[in-house]
Simulated assay, not measured.
Amino acid sequence: MPLPKDDPEERTERLVRYVRGALPDDEVEEIARAAAGDPELAADVAVLQAAAGTVRSEAGPADDLGWQRLARDIERMTPTATPRLVSPWWRAGAIAAGLLVAVQGALIVANPGLIGDDSYVAATSGETEFGVTLALDPDAREAEISSLLLEIGARIVDGPGALGIYHLAFDSAEDRTAGLERLRAAPIVETAAPE
């Protein structure tokens, strides 16, 4: 069966089988005669034979199957010593910190009286004695609001809510009265009323 020139894949496959010795004797003789008369075919056969020789020399003996080479490569890649990543002092410190957290948690659970009932008070809890309800201009800047509240001695106890209303507290009735006058005169205030 002559080598096809129009099907390069089959031609290459048959030449590879020729070089490997996997063709019947009659086809081997046919390709040998064709290579003797065709320098291009002879060059292709020479390239394939050189590649096959290189592969055989890399692979080693056929009965070896590359296991000895693989074992040698693995042995070469295995590190001889593993570097220590964490100092023993860090480990001791982490253990001590964990014990401290566990002891603190146990003390809090075992003695709830250590933390008084007044430890947390919501800012909005209870009524303010001297309170003011305040609505500001939506374009008012935070710096202007802070400056005004510091000037009159008021503190925010709630707000702004969904409607933009604040609840302020004063220390005395006199402070609230003076603060209301100043709030009503401020351009950023829309409304100010005592609670």
Rank of each mutant, 00 (worst) to 15 (best):
A154H: 00
T124N: 12
A34M: 13
L163E: 14
L149V: 01
A140C: 06
L180Y: 00
M1T: 14
A81L: 12
A62Q: 14
A43G: 11
G93Q: 11
D73W: 06
V16T: 13
F170V: 00
W67D: 15
L107Y: 08
F130R: 05
T128D: 15
D63N: 12
I115A: 11
D158C: 04
E190M: 14
Q49G: 06
W90D: 12
G116K: 12
E144G: 05
M77E: 13
I152P: 01
P160D: 03
A186C: 03
A59I: 06
T78W: 10
A50R: 13
L134V: 08
I156M: 02
I152W: 00
P88S: 11
P83K: 04
V45G: 03
V101T: 12
A46C: 01
V19A: 13
P138W: 09
G164E: 01
R33P: 02
A185F: 05
P39Q: 05
A178W: 04
D137C: 08
G113C: 05
V189H: 02
V47A: 10
V55M: 15
R91I: 13
L183I: 02
E13T: 08
I31G: 06
L3F: 03
A81K: 10
G164D: 01
G161A: 04
T12K: 11
P160K: 07
D64A: 12
E181N: 06
R176P: 01
S147Y: 07
G66F: 04
D117E: 13
W90C: 08
E10V: 12
E174I: 03
L70T: 15
D117M: 05
A97P: 03
A59D: 13
I165G: 00
I74H: 11
E195S: 09
L168W: 00
L107T: 04
K5R: 11
D139A: 15
A94E: 12
G131L: 04
E127T: 13
T54G: 11
